[in-house]
Write a protein that binds this DNA or RNA. Sequence first.
DNA 1: TTATTATCGTTCATATGTGAACATTTACAT
DNA 2: ATGTAAATGTTCACATATGAACGATAATAA
Lengths: 99, 99
Amino acid sequence: MTRPVSRKVTAANLEVGEQFRTWRKLLRLTLQQVADRAGISVSTLRRIERGDGGVSFQSMLSTARALGILESIVSATDPYETSFGRARADQILPERVHS
Amino acid sequence: MTRPVSRKVTAANLEVGEQFRTWRKLLRLTLQQVADRAGISVSTLRRIERGDGGVSFQSMLSTARALGILESIVSATDPYETSFGRARADQILPERVHS
DNA sequence: TTATTATCGTTCATATGTGAACATTTACAT
DNA sequence: ATGTAAATGTTCACATATGAACGATAATAA
Protein backbone atom coordinates (compact mmCIF):
# COMPACT_ATOMS: atom_id res chain seq x y z
CA MET A 1 0.00 0.00 0.00
CA THR A 2 1.76 3.08 -1.23
CA ARG A 3 -0.76 5.73 -0.23
CA PRO A 4 -1.41 6.24 3.49
CA VAL A 5 -4.65 4.70 4.72
CA SER A 6 -7.59 7.06 5.15
CA ARG A 7 -8.74 7.96 8.63
CA LYS A 8 -12.14 6.43 8.06
CA VAL A 9 -10.58 3.14 7.13
CA THR A 10 -8.32 3.22 10.16
CA ALA A 11 -11.32 3.99 12.36
CA ALA A 12 -13.31 1.17 10.80
CA ASN A 13 -10.45 -1.24 11.32
CA LEU A 14 -10.21 -0.19 14.95
CA GLU A 15 -13.94 -0.54 15.48
CA VAL A 16 -14.17 -3.97 13.92
CA GLY A 17 -11.33 -5.09 16.15
CA GLU A 18 -13.17 -3.90 19.24
CA GLN A 19 -16.33 -5.58 18.07
CA PHE A 20 -14.54 -8.87 17.56
CA ARG A 21 -13.19 -8.61 21.06
CA THR A 22 -16.67 -7.88 22.39
CA TRP A 23 -18.01 -10.93 20.58
CA ARG A 24 -15.30 -13.06 22.10
CA LYS A 25 -16.10 -11.78 25.58
CA LEU A 26 -19.80 -12.36 25.05
CA LEU A 27 -19.02 -15.94 24.15
CA ARG A 28 -16.69 -16.24 27.14
CA LEU A 29 -13.79 -17.45 25.06
CA THR A 30 -10.09 -16.82 25.49
CA LEU A 31 -7.75 -15.55 22.82
CA GLN A 32 -6.28 -19.04 22.62
CA GLN A 33 -9.67 -20.67 22.14
CA VAL A 34 -10.75 -18.35 19.37
CA ALA A 35 -7.36 -18.54 17.70
CA ASP A 36 -7.57 -22.32 17.71
CA ARG A 37 -11.07 -22.33 16.28
CA ALA A 38 -10.04 -19.84 13.64
CA GLY A 39 -6.83 -21.64 12.79
CA ILE A 40 -4.66 -18.61 13.39
CA SER A 41 -2.11 -17.71 16.03
CA VAL A 42 -2.86 -15.80 19.19
CA SER A 43 -0.45 -13.15 17.94
CA THR A 44 -2.55 -12.50 14.88
CA LEU A 45 -5.80 -12.55 16.82
CA ARG A 46 -4.43 -9.94 19.17
CA ARG A 47 -3.44 -7.84 16.18
CA ILE A 48 -6.97 -8.13 14.89
CA GLU A 49 -8.57 -7.05 18.15
CA ARG A 50 -6.08 -4.22 18.43
CA GLY A 51 -7.19 -2.98 15.05
CA ASP A 52 -3.65 -3.36 13.87
CA GLY A 53 -3.82 -2.65 10.16
CA GLY A 54 -2.51 -5.14 7.68
CA VAL A 55 -3.96 -8.35 9.01
CA SER A 56 -5.08 -10.54 6.13
CA PHE A 57 -8.72 -10.67 5.14
CA GLN A 58 -8.55 -14.45 5.45
CA SER A 59 -7.57 -14.15 9.10
CA MET A 60 -10.47 -11.77 9.65
CA LEU A 61 -12.95 -14.11 7.99
CA SER A 62 -11.60 -17.12 9.86
CA THR A 63 -12.04 -15.25 13.11
CA ALA A 64 -15.51 -14.13 12.11
CA ARG A 65 -16.39 -17.74 11.48
CA ALA A 66 -15.02 -18.74 14.87
CA LEU A 67 -17.28 -16.10 16.39
CA GLY A 68 -20.29 -17.08 14.34
CA ILE A 69 -20.64 -13.86 12.39
CA LEU A 70 -19.26 -14.90 9.01
CA GLU A 71 -22.59 -14.87 7.20
CA SER A 72 -23.35 -11.46 8.56
CA ILE A 73 -20.28 -10.03 6.90
CA VAL A 74 -20.99 -11.64 3.58
CA SER A 75 -24.51 -10.26 3.47
CA ALA A 76 -23.22 -6.83 4.37
CA THR A 77 -21.37 -6.60 1.07
CA ASP A 78 -24.17 -8.02 -1.05
CA PRO A 79 -25.45 -5.38 -3.49
CA TYR A 80 -28.78 -7.16 -3.77
CA GLU A 81 -29.39 -6.53 -0.11
CA THR A 82 -29.69 -2.84 -0.93
CA SER A 83 -32.40 -1.06 -2.82
CA PHE A 84 -29.77 0.76 -4.83
CA GLY A 85 -28.15 -2.45 -5.93
CA ARG A 86 -31.45 -4.07 -6.86
CA ALA A 87 -32.60 -1.02 -8.76
CA ARG A 88 -29.43 -0.52 -10.73
CA ALA A 89 -28.76 -4.17 -11.34
CA ASP A 90 -31.69 -4.56 -13.68
CA GLN A 91 -30.60 -1.60 -15.75
CA ILE A 92 -26.89 -2.23 -15.89
CA LEU A 93 -26.07 -5.84 -15.31
CA PRO A 94 -27.24 -8.46 -17.79
CA GLU A 95 -27.90 -10.92 -15.01
CA ARG A 96 -27.04 -11.60 -11.42
CA VAL A 97 -23.32 -12.04 -11.21
CA HIS A 98 -23.29 -14.03 -8.03
CA SER A 99 -25.65 -16.58 -6.62
CA MET B 1 -1.53 -19.10 8.61
CA THR B 2 -0.40 -22.60 9.45
CA ARG B 3 -3.70 -24.45 9.28
CA PRO B 4 -5.44 -24.67 5.91
CA VAL B 5 -8.33 -22.26 5.50
CA SER B 6 -11.80 -23.70 5.95
CA ARG B 7 -14.02 -24.13 2.92
CA LYS B 8 -16.61 -21.75 4.30
CA VAL B 9 -14.01 -19.04 4.69
CA THR B 10 -12.74 -19.63 1.17
CA ALA B 11 -16.28 -19.47 -0.14
CA ALA B 12 -16.96 -16.28 1.78
CA ASN B 13 -13.79 -14.72 0.45
CA LEU B 14 -14.81 -15.65 -3.08
CA GLU B 15 -18.31 -14.30 -2.63
CA VAL B 16 -17.19 -11.00 -1.19
CA GLY B 17 -14.82 -10.61 -4.12
CA GLU B 18 -17.66 -11.16 -6.58
CA GLN B 19 -19.84 -8.72 -4.70
CA PHE B 20 -17.16 -6.07 -4.79
CA ARG B 21 -16.89 -6.55 -8.51
CA THR B 22 -20.65 -6.27 -8.86
CA TRP B 23 -20.60 -3.04 -6.88
CA ARG B 24 -17.92 -1.66 -9.13
CA LYS B 25 -19.91 -2.57 -12.23
CA LEU B 26 -23.05 -1.03 -10.78
CA LEU B 27 -21.12 2.17 -10.24
CA ARG B 28 -19.67 1.94 -13.76
CA LEU B 29 -16.12 2.24 -12.53
CA THR B 30 -12.97 0.65 -13.90
CA LEU B 31 -10.43 -1.28 -11.88
CA GLN B 32 -8.09 1.67 -12.21
CA GLN B 33 -10.65 4.14 -10.92
CA VAL B 34 -11.56 2.10 -7.88
CA ALA B 35 -7.93 1.31 -7.17
CA ASP B 36 -7.11 5.00 -7.26
CA ARG B 37 -9.98 5.92 -4.98
CA ALA B 38 -9.01 3.15 -2.59
CA GLY B 39 -5.33 3.97 -2.68
CA ILE B 40 -4.28 0.49 -3.70
CA SER B 41 -2.85 -0.98 -6.86
CA VAL B 42 -4.88 -2.54 -9.65
CA SER B 43 -3.03 -5.77 -8.95
CA THR B 44 -4.37 -5.90 -5.42
CA LEU B 45 -7.87 -4.93 -6.48
CA ARG B 46 -7.90 -7.75 -8.95
CA ARG B 47 -6.79 -10.14 -6.22
CA ILE B 48 -9.67 -8.90 -4.12
CA GLU B 49 -12.27 -9.40 -6.83
CA ARG B 50 -10.79 -12.78 -7.64
CA GLY B 51 -11.28 -13.83 -4.04
CA ASP B 52 -7.58 -14.48 -3.85
CA GLY B 53 -6.95 -15.18 -0.19
CA GLY B 54 -4.44 -13.23 1.77
CA VAL B 55 -5.26 -9.70 0.77
CA SER B 56 -4.95 -7.38 3.74
CA PHE B 57 -8.03 -6.32 5.64
CA GLN B 58 -6.96 -2.73 5.13
CA SER B 59 -7.07 -3.14 1.39
CA MET B 60 -10.54 -4.64 1.69
CA LEU B 61 -11.79 -1.78 3.84
CA SER B 62 -10.20 0.80 1.57
CA THR B 63 -11.95 -0.75 -1.38
CA ALA B 64 -15.22 -0.93 0.53
CA ARG B 65 -14.90 2.75 1.23
CA ALA B 66 -14.23 3.48 -2.43
CA LEU B 67 -17.44 1.60 -3.22
CA GLY B 68 -19.43 3.29 -0.48
CA ILE B 69 -20.12 0.21 1.61
CA LEU B 70 -17.68 0.72 4.45
CA GLU B 71 -20.31 1.52 7.07
CA SER B 72 -22.29 -1.49 6.08
CA ILE B 73 -19.40 -3.77 6.94
CA VAL B 74 -18.76 -2.13 10.27
CA SER B 75 -22.36 -2.54 11.37
CA ALA B 76 -22.33 -6.14 10.26
CA THR B 77 -19.83 -6.99 12.96
CA ASP B 78 -21.48 -4.96 15.70
CA PRO B 79 -22.72 -7.27 18.47
CA TYR B 80 -25.26 -4.69 19.58
CA GLU B 81 -26.96 -4.99 16.22
CA THR B 82 -28.02 -8.49 17.22
CA SER B 83 -30.53 -9.55 19.82
CA PHE B 84 -28.06 -12.07 21.13
CA GLY B 85 -25.39 -9.46 21.65
CA ARG B 86 -27.75 -7.06 23.36
CA ALA B 87 -29.16 -9.77 25.61
CA ARG B 88 -25.84 -11.19 26.70
CA ALA B 89 -24.07 -7.88 27.01
CA ASP B 90 -26.09 -6.83 30.02
CA GLN B 91 -25.32 -10.06 31.81
CA ILE B 92 -21.67 -10.42 30.97
CA LEU B 93 -20.08 -7.14 30.09
CA PRO B 94 -19.81 -4.42 32.72
CA GLU B 95 -20.49 -1.78 30.11
CA ARG B 96 -20.52 -1.20 26.42
CA VAL B 97 -17.04 -1.74 25.16
CA HIS B 98 -17.40 0.32 22.04
CA SER B 99 -19.41 3.38 21.26
C1' DT C 1 -2.28 -14.00 50.56
C1' DT C 2 -0.93 -17.53 46.86
C1' DA C 3 -1.70 -20.00 42.67
C1' DT C 4 -3.44 -20.07 38.15
C1' DT C 5 -4.81 -18.23 34.01
C1' DA C 6 -5.31 -14.60 30.63
C1' DT C 7 -3.58 -10.76 28.42
C1' DC C 8 -0.03 -7.80 26.93
C1' DG C 9 4.31 -5.96 24.61
C1' DT C 10 8.34 -7.15 22.76
C1' DT C 11 11.65 -9.34 19.26
C1' DC C 12 12.88 -12.26 15.37
C1' DA C 13 13.15 -15.60 11.24
C1' DT C 14 10.30 -16.96 7.77
C1' DA C 15 6.51 -16.76 4.77
C1' DT C 16 3.82 -14.05 1.85
C1' DG C 17 1.41 -9.92 0.30
C1' DT C 18 2.25 -5.74 -2.59
C1' DG C 19 3.06 -2.85 -6.56
C1' DA C 20 5.02 -2.38 -11.07
C1' DA C 21 5.89 -3.76 -15.69
C1' DC C 22 5.00 -6.45 -19.48
C1' DA C 23 2.46 -9.03 -23.04
C1' DT C 24 -2.03 -11.00 -24.12
C1' DT C 25 -6.87 -11.33 -24.46
C1' DT C 26 -11.40 -9.53 -24.06
C1' DA C 27 -14.94 -5.92 -24.39
C1' DC C 28 -16.84 -1.99 -26.32
C1' DA C 29 -17.64 1.65 -29.30
C1' DT C 30 -17.39 3.82 -33.96
C1' DA D 1 -14.45 -4.81 -39.24
C1' DT D 2 -11.27 -1.58 -36.96
C1' DG D 3 -9.51 1.00 -33.17
C1' DT D 4 -9.48 1.96 -28.30
C1' DA D 5 -9.97 0.94 -23.59
C1' DA D 6 -10.36 -2.51 -20.13
C1' DA D 7 -9.31 -6.69 -18.11
C1' DT D 8 -6.22 -10.59 -17.60
C1' DG D 9 -2.09 -13.38 -16.26
C1' DT D 10 2.31 -13.62 -15.73
C1' DT D 11 6.95 -12.37 -13.40
C1' DC D 12 9.92 -9.98 -10.05
C1' DA D 13 12.07 -7.15 -6.18
C1' DC D 14 10.65 -5.28 -2.03
C1' DA D 15 7.85 -4.56 1.88
C1' DT D 16 5.37 -6.57 5.47
C1' DA D 17 2.35 -9.99 7.85
C1' DT D 18 2.76 -14.29 10.37
C1' DG D 19 3.78 -17.38 14.15
C1' DA D 20 6.61 -18.45 17.97
C1' DA D 21 8.99 -17.45 22.18
C1' DC D 22 10.03 -14.63 25.84
C1' DG D 23 9.06 -11.98 30.10
C1' DA D 24 5.90 -8.86 32.44
C1' DT D 25 1.46 -7.47 34.01
C1' DA D 26 -3.47 -8.13 35.09
C1' DA D 27 -7.23 -10.69 36.35
C1' DT D 28 -9.49 -14.52 38.65
C1' DA D 29 -9.96 -18.21 41.86
C1' DA D 30 -8.66 -20.98 45.92
